[in-house]
């Protein structure tokens, strides 16, 4: 496995002020692998995810993409963002742009792809998530689930190798969650490498090749979902899962 890790995180440590948020995390993600991060609120899941595409800086440790440090100048200013996409809980679409402009902004302005080509790609992707008719709509005209699907397409528009997803269904009404999770399952079937932060344990069990349980900025346990969800080894994991079961989310 060691040679073919797509993402490798070693000794990652991050402070917010004096507060230790990521505490020496080691983790790797193989190509085509789907890894889910679970854990209580404040355990550092989002922060860990945002380190991978350098949305936040860290204090110690290294992160590599296909063996090259993500901080390597060879990526230039935009090379890393082209290869790692991210989707946020609150969609963060640009409200003053149409769906099509949201999706083609980065390809056109950052990666200098001609408009016609960028739009063709975008329309293809939109059709693949069932939003072919919404290219000219504005985000506020769409439902939450539709907006999140657009956000996923926007992140995929540069054909990244890795997709990071941060609680992408947490802001959605229950009846809209399925349509978004369906898209993500499809991406897994296409072989996309993904790191997914989620509170949807059923989904994690279903889609993940590996689940990591975080607490206090450390990975306390990682295993195949079938193992981790049924026979957790760490008592903290067991406790967390019991609380989840008690609240009816597993």
């Amino acid at each position: 496995m060691a040679g073919q890790a797509r993402i490798r995180i070693e000794g990652l440590t991050k402070y917010y002020g004096d507060k230790l948020v990521i505490d020496g995390v080691d983790m790797s993600v193989a190509a085509h692998e789907v890894v889910c991060l679970i854990g209580a609120s404040g355990s550092g899941k989002s922060t860990l995810l945002r380190c991978i595409n350098r949305l936040v800086d860290w204090d110690h440790g290294t992160i590599t993409l296909d063996g090259v440090s993500v901080e390597d100048p060879a990526f230039g200013r935009t090379g890393l963002q082209k290869r790692i996409g991210i989707v946020f809980q609150s969609y963060n679409l640009f409200p003053h742009m149409t769906v099509l402009d949201n999706i083609t902004l980065a390809p056109r302005k950052v990666h200098r792809i001609p408009r016609a080509e960028a739009e063709e790609t975008a329309r293809g992707l939109l059709a693949s998530v069932g939003l072919g008719d919404f290219a000219r709509a504005y985000p506020e005209q769409l439902s939450g689930g539709q907006q999140q699907r657009v956000a996923i397409v926007r992140a995929l528009a540069t054909r990244p190798d890795v997709l990071l997803l941060d609680e992408v269904t947490a802001a959605l009404d229950p009846e809209l969650i399925g349509e978004v999770l369906g898209i993500i399952r499809g991406l897994k079937d296409d072989g996309l490498t993904m790191v997914i932060v989620t509170h949807e344990m059923g989904f994690a069990r279903d889609v993940a090749d590996r689940v990591c349980f975080l607490e206090g900025g450390r990975i306390l346990e990682e295993a195949h979902p079938a193992r981790l969800f049924t026979t957790p080894e760490n008592p903290r994991t067991a406790q967390f899962l019991e609380r989840i079961i008690a609240s009816g989310r597993l």
């Binding site: 595409n53 949305l55 200013r77 935009t78 890393l80 963002q81 082209k82 996409g85 991210i86 946020f88 609150s90 963060n92 679409l93 640009f94 902004l105 980065a106 302005k109 950052v110 990666h111 926007r154 992140a155 540069t158």
Partner: peptide, 17 residues
């Protein structure tokens, strides 16, 4: 909203863009 900056940065836009 701060999320707009995060989204733009994640897409590779420079601070100016």
């Amino acid at each position: 909203h701060e999320g707009q900056r995060a989204a733009a940065k994640a897409l590779g836009l420079s601070e100016w863009q």
